[in-house]
Design a protein around this nucleic acid. Structure first.
Length: 352
DNA sequence: AAGACGGGGAC
DNA sequence: GTCCCAGTCTT
């Protein structure tokens, strides 16, 4: 690929000056502890700053060091993650902490390749850790940087395609300065999060507008060009609120797959050709129930790739005291409020 | 190369 | 309501 239309130092100098004036004060910026930087970067994958901050604080209070995280049971980690989404991140985080302890004596590795070898850490997150924690030059290419670079150099085409992605990494490499890589990494992500936003970018306040090819062409609103999206299907589910002595039966989902390790009311997807009632009957049989469930209401929940309507049924469970397996619990509503239920069944609590 | 994976903020 | 993610791993 060709070089830059201006010296890279022109860009980094303007950006760093802006960061000195307008950079945000975020909890993880008060430390250079690689453990804290790593934790913040994992939480910030696909998740916004405002959603992350309370989770970050709670998590660090429970696990102040990577050793304490490694020593914790996975259940405790998942409990502190419940509500953040992408739960595989929490499992990888725990696995990686164990690896740091077993293979690196509890000392967080400093080499890019070694950091990338940790579960859940790819090239961009490893670059962020190297830059921010160790102040050594390493390129980053997350969603914010991707957007800034597509606009800065007027790069058309789907930025997630292999060709454009490769180009963007080489641009990121060229632009990352030897000097102050810590500040540069924070600055370019801040610029993308605040000024160079997905919609209505504030080019008037942007320190890079004088260098920005998209701005000069007036196409900043059209970049980056997103790939085509698939329509999101609507899925029907039924869930059973089995109660006994004021407590409800919940079960733990398998660790692998969607919402892995989180808890839920016994539930199942309604096949296209079946009714909710038929699905409920199959469910009651599976849980060893004889009583007829009564409809309670419906809650709706949206995921990125599908939406779901959960039809709730209540059912007395006095005949199924035999359900005592490790992954089932009887809990009162007050306990359920703090239990790591997944999002759609948290909503169901509102109907109890 | 494409699909899977949650939830919330911004508008 | 719609759109967008501070990505990584699996197939």
């Amino acid at each position: 690929m060709q070089g830059l239309p201006w010296p890279a130092e022109d860009m980094s100098r303007r950006l760093l000056a802006w960061y000195g004036r307008s950079g945000r004060d975020l909890p993880w910026r008060r430390s250079r502890d690689p453990y804290r930087i790593w934790l913040s970067e994992i939480m910030l994958q696909q998740t916004g700053v405002t959603a992350v901050i309370p989770y970050y604080e709670r998590f660090l209070a429970a696990f102040p060091t990577v050793m304490e995280l490694a020593a914790a049971p996975l259940d405790k980690v998942l409990e502190l993650w419940a509500g953040l989404g992408y739960y595989r991140r929490a499992r990888f985080l725990h696995q990686a902490a164990c690896k740091v302890v077993s293979e690196h004596g509890g000392c967080f590795p400093e080499k890019l390749e070694t950091i990338m070898a940790l579960p859940g850490v790819g090239r961009s997150t490893a670059g962020a850790i190297v830059s921010i924690a160790f102040d050594r030059k390493a390129p980053i290419l997350d969603g914010n940087v991707r957007r800034v670079l597509c606009r800065l150099l007027a790069i058309f085409g789907d930025p997630r395609s292999g060709k454009v992605e490769k180009h963007l990494w080489s641009i990121a490499e060229m632009l990352t300065p030897e000097d102050r890589p810590h500040d540069y990494a924070q600055a370019i992500m801040d610029l993308g999060a605040t000024v160079c936003s997905p919609r209505n970018p504030d080019c008037e306040s942007c320190p890079l507008s004088g260098l920005c090819q998209a701005f000069w062409q007036g196409v900043q609103e059209q970049l980056p060009q997103r790939g085509k999206r698939k329509a999101v299907p609507l899925v029907q589910q039924v869930a059973l609120l089995i109660h006994h002595d004021g407590r409800y039966l919940v079960r733990r989902r398998p660790l692998d797959g969607m919402l892995g390790g989180l808890w839920e009311f016994p539930s199942t997807t309604v096949p296209e050709e079946k009714t909710s009632e038929a699905a409920v009957r199959a469910l009651t049989a599976g849980e060893g129930l004889s009583a007829v469930p009564q409809p309670l209401g419906t809650v709706r929940h949206a995921y990125s790739h599908f939406r779901v309507e959960v039809h709730l049924f209540t059912c007395p469970g006095d005949s199924c005291g035999m359900i005592a397996e490790e992954d089932h619990r009887w809990l009162a509503p007050a306990q359920l409020a703090d239990w790591p239920l997944h999002g759609s069944h948290k909503k169901a609590l509102g109907l109890l």
